[in-house]
Simulated scan of single mutants.
Amino acid sequence: SNPDPIVAILRRKGFIDALLDHGITYNPDFIWGVENAYQTGLDAIKKFGNPLPFTAAIGSADIISIGLLNGAKDAGIAVPDDLSIVTIDGTELTQLT
């Protein structure tokens, strides 16, 4: 999401640090999107295509992750078999989904 607020900076740093801690190469092209919106998740699946170049995605907001989930379904990508989705906020939206 928006790269300037402190929350986005801390989440991005934590993500990059976790990758490096586990010997996973960080690819800045995989951090994508600027709005905390459902459409961002849908657009991310379209941007990266099918098959996806990764097997997991982290949504920086629950609404983005729901877009990822539905975008994957629309693209014929099976969750969680082909794509695991992790989300951050823990709002009621995740309970409903």
Results as ranks from 00 to 15, higher is better:
Ser60Leu: 10
Gly76Pro: 03
Ala72Gly: 05
Val7Arg: 05
Leu20Val: 12
Leu19Arg: 05
Leu20Gly: 07
Leu93Gln: 09
Asn50His: 14
Pro5Ile: 10
Asn50Gly: 05
Glu92Arg: 13
Asp29Gln: 10
Ser60His: 14
Lys47Val: 04
Ile58Val: 14
Phe48Pro: 06
Leu93Ile: 15
Gly67Asp: 08
Ser1Ala: 10
Gly23Cys: 07
Ile66Val: 08
Glu92Tyr: 12
Thr87Phe: 00
Asp62Met: 03
Lys73Tyr: 12
Ile66Tyr: 07
Pro53His: 10
Ser60Lys: 06
Leu19Ile: 05
Gly71Gln: 02
Asn50Leu: 06
Lys46Leu: 05
Gln39Gly: 04
Asp29Trp: 01
Ser65Trp: 02
Ala61Thr: 06
Ile66Met: 08
Ile85Tyr: 09
Leu83Pro: 13
Asn27Met: 09
Lys13Gly: 02
Leu42Asp: 05
Asp4Pro: 01
Gly33Trp: 01
Asp29Ala: 12
Trp32Phe: 09
Leu19His: 10
Asp17Asn: 14
Ser65Ile: 00
Ala72Asn: 12
Thr55Glu: 15
Pro3Trp: 01
Gly49Ser: 11
Val34Ala: 15
Leu42Arg: 05
Phe54Thr: 03
Ala8Gln: 10
Ala18Ser: 07
Asn36Gln: 15
Ile24Gln: 13
Ile31Ala: 00
Gly76Gln: 00
Thr40Arg: 00
Gly59Arg: 01
Asp81Trp: 09
Pro5Arg: 04
Ser84Gln: 12
Leu69Phe: 07
Ile24Cys: 14
Asp17Cys: 13
Gly49Ala: 12
Asn36Pro: 12
Pro28Met: 09
Ser65Glu: 03
Arg12Thr: 11
Pro5Asn: 12
Asp89Ser: 08
Lys73His: 13
Phe54Pro: 02
Gly41Cys: 13
Ala37Ile: 10
Asn27Leu: 10
Leu96Pro: 05
Asp43Pro: 04
Asp21Ala: 13
Asn27Cys: 11
Thr91Met: 13
Pro28Glu: 15
Leu93Asn: 08
Asp17Val: 07
Arg11Met: 15
Ala18Thr: 09
Leu42Lys: 06
Trp32Asn: 02
Asp21His: 08
Ala75Gly: 11
Thr97Pro: 02
Leu69Met: 15
Asp29Ile: 00
Ile85Ser: 06
Ala37Phe: 11
Ile63Met: 04
Asn50Ser: 15
Leu69Thr: 13
Gly90Trp: 05
Gly71His: 03
Ile63Glu: 00
Lys46Val: 06
Val34Lys: 15
Phe15Gln: 01
Asn50Ile: 07
Thr25Ala: 14
Ala18Trp: 10
Ile85His: 05
Ala75Pro: 01
Ile88Met: 14
Ala56Tyr: 10
Lys47Leu: 02
Asp4Asn: 15
Trp32Glu: 05
Ile85Val: 10
Ile63Ala: 01
Phe15Ser: 00
Ile77Arg: 00
Gly59His: 01
Asn70Cys: 13
Ile45Ala: 03
Thr97Ala: 10
Leu10Glu: 09
